[in-house]
Amino acid sequence: MKTGITTGTAATAAAKGALIKILKGVIPDKVDVVLPDKRILEIPLILKNDMVGVKKWSGDDPDVTDGIEIFAKVDFTKDDGVVQIKGGEGVGVVTKPGLQIKVGEAAINPVPRRMIEENLKPLLPEGVGVEVTIIVPDGVKIAEKTFNSRLGIVGGISIIGTTGIVKPMSLEALIQTIKCEIDVLLASKVKDIWLVPGNIGEKCLKAFMDVETVIVSNYFEDALNYLRERQVEKVGVAGHPGKIAKLAMGYFNTHSKNSPQANSYIKKVLNVDDDFNTVEEICGKYCFDKIAEEVSKKVKERYGFSKVDVVLFDMKCRLVGKFYD
């Protein structure tokens, strides 16, 4: 499996290339970037519209930023040895508290900022500093495919990465996004957080009540563990009973590879005599309040929440079951 580079590594390489360009008047084909663990990566450079950049690659990771072009503009300042870092076109701006970056600043995370600073400082002539502006021409368009808007980051993508390397399988990144979204809600003093598996669950719930949601896909276990880690006492869970019932069965990673179908369990709990192929078939014929109650009990038992509310919808967003703790 091939690895890739983070947006932070791409931005660092672009900034180093841009600095070499104004120092020497030439642009190297490649630059060496020192990663946080002190390994060195050789990154190819590109030149467009007189700007030095990098075409990011993600390896075998399904990343929406794969192939995106990240550029840097470097200007000298009179601040001896100081590397200032700004976000330009296509780099998002933080608008909500709870993230690693302050509200109002460019969404360039601490590790990429440190990488840029540490890779550029050794090249600076005595008595000068630099202002580095990171530019992502397609950043606004690409950001629409990310979680940035949910995190309160507007106007472009984030420059991120903790190791500088993108490893195949973006599960770690997804879990981190879930945690970030929870952090943002808690920093905004939201007390009523609901977990939903996906967009349909979110749409149904928000049509039913005015609450804040976190999309967790199949990873309820990671989200619930983190909420308890953050000392949250109350949580809501909503979605289709075919998936949410798996929580009552004790499966908190609800992916089909990690959990059985809930049909038999639902049939037993609701005393369903009829045969059915899918849970959706019986959503209009039976009340799922008992399933919602069992989900609440199991989540409290497993994680120690004081209160767990559960709301269940069919695929047409019709309410089929609820339990308010």
Rank of each mutant, 00 (worst) to 15 (best):
M1K: 10
I5G: 13
T7G: 02
G8L: 00
T12A: 03
A14I: 02
A18P: 01
I20R: 10
I20Y: 04
K21I: 05
V33I: 11
P36G: 02
K38N: 14
K38E: 14
L41Y: 14
L47S: 15
K48M: 10
M51K: 15
V54P: 01
K55I: 15
D61E: 12
P62M: 06
D63M: 08
D63E: 05
I68F: 12
E69V: 14
F71V: 12
A72N: 07
A72D: 06
A72K: 00
A72Y: 02
T77N: 01
T77F: 05
V83D: 01
Q84K: 15
K86A: 08
G87A: 07
G87M: 05
G88S: 08
G88P: 09
G88I: 06
V91L: 04
V91H: 09
V94H: 00
V94K: 04
P97N: 00
G98V: 02
I101G: 09
V103I: 05
P112W: 06
I116K: 07
E117D: 09
G127K: 00
V128Y: 13
G129T: 09
E131F: 07
I134E: 07
P137F: 11
P137R: 02
P137K: 00
K141S: 15
K141T: 13
I142G: 11
K145N: 15
K145Y: 15
R150Y: 01
L151C: 04
L151I: 09
G152L: 10
I157Q: 07
T163E: 10
G164H: 09
S170P: 05
L171Y: 10
A173M: 08
A173G: 14
T177M: 13
C180T: 12
D183Y: 14
L185T: 09
K189A: 13
K189C: 12
V190I: 14
K191Y: 10
D192P: 05
N199I: 10
N199Y: 08
I200D: 11
E202W: 02
K203L: 10
A207G: 15
A207S: 14
V211I: 11
E212F: 06
E212L: 01
E212S: 14
V214N: 03
V214A: 11
I215S: 04
N218C: 05
N218V: 09
A223L: 06
L227E: 04
V235D: 04
V235K: 07
G236Q: 02
G242T: 06
K243C: 09
A248D: 06
N253W: 03
N253I: 10
Q261M: 15
Y265R: 00
K268V: 10
K268P: 01
L270T: 08
N271D: 15
N271R: 15
V272G: 02
D273W: 12
D275K: 14
F276R: 05
N277H: 15
V279S: 08
E280A: 06
E280T: 03
I282M: 07
C283F: 13
K285F: 12
V295D: 04
S296E: 04
E301T: 02
Y303S: 07
F305D: 01
V308A: 00
V310K: 06
L312S: 02
M315V: 05
M315R: 14
V320H: 08
V320S: 01
F323T: 10
